[in-house]
Design a protein around this nucleic acid. Sequence first.
DNA 1: CTGAAAGCGCTAACAT
DNA 2: ATGTTAGCGCTTTCAG
Lengths: 341, 341
Amino acid sequence: MAHTVGIKEVARQAGVSVGTVSNVINRPHMVAEETRQRVQAAIDELGYVRSESARQLRAGQSRIIALLVLDMANPFFVDVATGAERVARASKLGVMLCNSAQSTSEEADYLGLFAEQRVRGVLVTPADLSGRSLTDFRRHGIPFVFVDRVLPSAEGCSVSVDDVLGGTLAVRHLLAQGHPEVAYVSGPMSLQQCQDRRQGALAALAEAGLDESALRHVEAARLDVPAGREAGAALLRMSPRPSAVFCANDLLALGVLQALFAAELRVPQDMALVGYDDIEFAAAAAVPLTSVRQPAVRMGRQAAELLLEETGEAAQSHRHQRIVLEPELVVRESTRWTRRA
Amino acid sequence: MAHTVGIKEVARQAGVSVGTVSNVINRPHMVAEETRQRVQAAIDELGYVRSESARQLRAGQSRIIALLVLDMANPFFVDVATGAERVARASKLGVMLCNSAQSTSEEADYLGLFAEQRVRGVLVTPADLSGRSLTDFRRHGIPFVFVDRVLPSAEGCSVSVDDVLGGTLAVRHLLAQGHPEVAYVSGPMSLQQCQDRRQGALAALAEAGLDESALRHVEAARLDVPAGREAGAALLRMSPRPSAVFCANDLLALGVLQALFAAELRVPQDMALVGYDDIEFAAAAAVPLTSVRQPAVRMGRQAAELLLEETGEAAQSHRHQRIVLEPELVVRESTRWTRRA
DNA sequence: CTGAAAGCGCTAACAT
DNA sequence: ATGTTAGCGCTTTCAG
């Protein structure tokens, strides 16, 4: 690699001082037009690019915000990332997108990396429910916003979706179709949202005068398609076989769908299916999936806005808040069938 | 934010010099055990975290590699990212994942950002075919590897998949099923791979003694599901309606599938469909999709390895290479039907 | 084995 | 309007 050209060389080439070059870059209006042009010419000729690291070192913080998600293979998080990135780039900030893959150690690693980078702030969907890694992280004084999780304490902002409501919408719909009971295919119950969605399901059951025993439970090891296939197999082994299933996310539902197809069962006639997230592929599934839609892009956007507010000029006037958005049920073929009693 | 604790404070607290603290961090073996412990204690107590920016400033380059993809919403690229990330993290490097969204200006912006960050190297699937933004970027002397594209010049490495072969596999299969002609749903023809896949399709036609006129052409504006829906509608307006369709990627195929379903056509009886990429959702589609599988994770891995080789210790022994991987046809329901002449 | 000091490239006072 | 200069926090000679 050729020698890196710095501000100093540009200054010499243009016959000015380094301070002037800096001014041309950061406060162009404060410098005489003629000088500005000369400096700009030198910059172009030498191919000068300012060093972010030097800049950061002086500033004490970087121009990057980090986004740490649970699963990049889940389109839901891609949407969240899209929303966040849009906001960040509008403020000339870069986004470092990372995937903890639901591993607490990966999460801790990344958090450590962010601290070393002195990132401006981090948007995170924590994998570590104990809050251990986050508690450690808080020491560094780097602001963070929880995404898709409610922050338990008052130490920061969070943007989430009402998962209890989502569960209720799903199961209420299923019961309205005439199903006498429902199975819940959960992800790991260590995930708050899996608990909440179950909670919501129970609430819907209660509305219908049913108790907890009307909710069969299958817990998948992960929130992805293969785990869904396994859950589907488990569903098929149940007796009596459930006629309606609510899945903790669409990936799981897609997996269940595959298992049902492999067993030559029809959806929704033999089994009605509701997913969660309403990812793009839900509508493209073997049987278009009824799903609980989450305002993912909006969540990413709001989270980033909250973070910028906390790290920006008006930081002092910032009040931590917990924003809770509402999900919405999107009915499609996978439940469109009225069961006869 | 509390005052940032630096190496200096740690040194004072431990009663040693800054140089010693640095040694404890970077070359622990070179320091007396007793001293090491004392310093470590100070580090823990003060919650010291080393500043990457200061470190980089000295080193002249960062510990981050950038990955710039065309479309984060495409699971194919998520797989590529997974492969690359795995390699990077094994070498204690961070990955900055960015999405050019097929926009040349976004791409140029990101490339500029990478240059400022002095990233260790970049893996890129270029959106700008003219090579303009990359030519500009090359000045900075930052190594890069093309992913899913062949690098035209000998200025760097590339890892790609043989798209011509992929197109041939797809269309050869369709012809073998008895279809007398084939439609090709392309993405933007400005994309090399869309051209190559078409090329491959033509080759398969030629094998069967057919010429270019046997390939109907629909060009979608983007490589995503909505564009596929539009392409599907275009297919339906054709007369005679094609009986076999090869799509430039799975997202497009999924969109076409939706359009066919909306029109109550059956796949493969009324129209056979082949996709490309074999994303996870291809198998979960309304009709499981025959698709050309790309070794995406492997591509990401190899690209990262090439980059590390070029930026690592053995940099001098590095020879630029163009690795071309082979795709593979995965046959599923969407073409599983023998047409009678 | 440990300490002292130079400087990486930049910005922001301050001085002219 | 422009020049000079002091660090930001760290690594790395070079002495001791």
